[in-house]
Design a protein around this nucleic acid. Structure first.
Lengths: 226, 226
DNA sequence: ACCTGAACACCGTTCAAGT
DNA sequence: ACCTGAACACCGTTCAAGT
């Protein structure tokens, strides 16, 4: 059982560490096992070193995760298809959401880690350009990007929860039961609307985008008189 | 060093476990040390037992956290002050957000744990009543509650991030730097708007609510022609 | 049925020491 | 400067065994 002094290059010379290398390893891990497994320890193990070594290049676990999101955002391009800027904007948002939808855990993360990677910035730029095309004044546009991206991200994070969670079926049906059983005395409006509160009949997401866009077009920035 | 057989009632008879008792203990821990410390192990320790014992009453760590949010939501009442339903709705949403703002970690949690506690339900009921008062058709109202609460929660979760995180100052200023340094060639719109993208000058939150409310009032549910 | 000790399988981050 | 082993201080959840 004497410990074999492992030959100096069991793997063809361990490549030097670098931020990029770490991110590549993290990305691979992410695609194979999901965000939950992208931990400092696991990434370090893949790179055949200890977790402490990563801290030279990565400040945080969050830092690592944010880098993964930005990498996935590379696929988003401005749709040039319809002439209507309104529809093109919705298309852009939907394609951003598609990424988050495919990887629900990232939506949660994006909710709390103000992204600032190059691909995210490109997305912001695209949206600003579309708003400008739609004649939205600059002051409003600046706030509107935020609102639109917040909505898209939050919507994805919400769906993410009840898709990924094992408790979801019971959660959802128990919620449905609560709503259907809602006491008409104390919760008349919930009782009246019933299942409609939960249903996604119709294009609920599209309606949400329309609400936002219509609202943005018609709400002056400084008119707050309250 | 013989182990003293501890007298049978060192504490005046350990109270029997119960879901309520566990939640009370969790709530105390939450107020003293924050959500991060509300773990199965810590709560069990407070109750002078092992973590395994809690699983008879609590299904999950998430279950525990959701219960904490609902407890905090007890304080939200419908404001009866202004006659304008529009303003009353904004007031209700702001008071919901105030809770999340005070306890930022909970906003993140609410993002991914579809709440269904009695106090949350009461909040939904209040909002539905206000929308009805405002003449919003039922079909739209059902979706609108969701949209409004999603926005409020997401907004709180977002602020939560850069308030709670130690990295926030560097994060924020680095983002600001990126935006100010934005290449006018590749990111013309970001470069043009600059600091306006980040600034909260003016009532940004209020503007968001107005956008939503205006949009809700003007966007028919089935008009999606795309 | 309820409760528990102990174990399984992990975490993030820091630090002193090496190269 | 960069890299590392080892340690510190934790986690959630399950399971076999007890009462």
């Amino acid at each position: 059982m004497a410990k074999q002094p492992r030959s100096r290059r069991e793997r063809p010379s361990k490549p030097a560490l670098s931020r990029e290398g770490i991110i590549v390893a993290a990305l691979a891990l992410f695609h194979e096992e999901g965000l939950a497994k992208v931990t400092m320890r696991r990434v370090a193990a893949v790179l055949d070193t200890g977790p402490a070594s990563l801290y030279v290049y990565i400040s945080d676990t969050e830092d690592l995760h944010a880098e993964i999101l930005d990498a996935l955002l590379a696929g988003i391009a401005e749709p040039s298809s319809p002439d209507d800027w309104h529809e093109r904007l919705k298309g852009t948002l939907r394609s951003y959401m598609a990424v988050l939808f495919e990887h629900p855990e990232l939506a949660r993360m994006a909710m709390s880690t103000m992204p600032s990677g190059p691909n995210y910035l490109a997305l912001v730029e695209t949206i600003l350009a579309l708003l400008k095309e739609g004649g939205v004044p600059d002051g409003q546009a600046a706030w509107a990007v935020d609102l639109l991206l917040l909505f898209a991200t939050a919507q994805a994070a919400e769906k993410a929860a009840w898709k990924a969670s094992a408790r979801s079926p019971s959660d959802f049906s128990s919620l449905a039961k609560i709503i259907e059983t809602a006491d008409a005395e104390t919760l008349p409006n919930i009782a009246r609307l019933g299942a409609d509160l939960l249903s996604g009949r119709g294009d609920r997401l599209g309606w949400g985008f329309d609400v936002l866009i219509n609202g943005i077009l018609e709400t002056r920035r400084m008119e707050t008189k309250s």
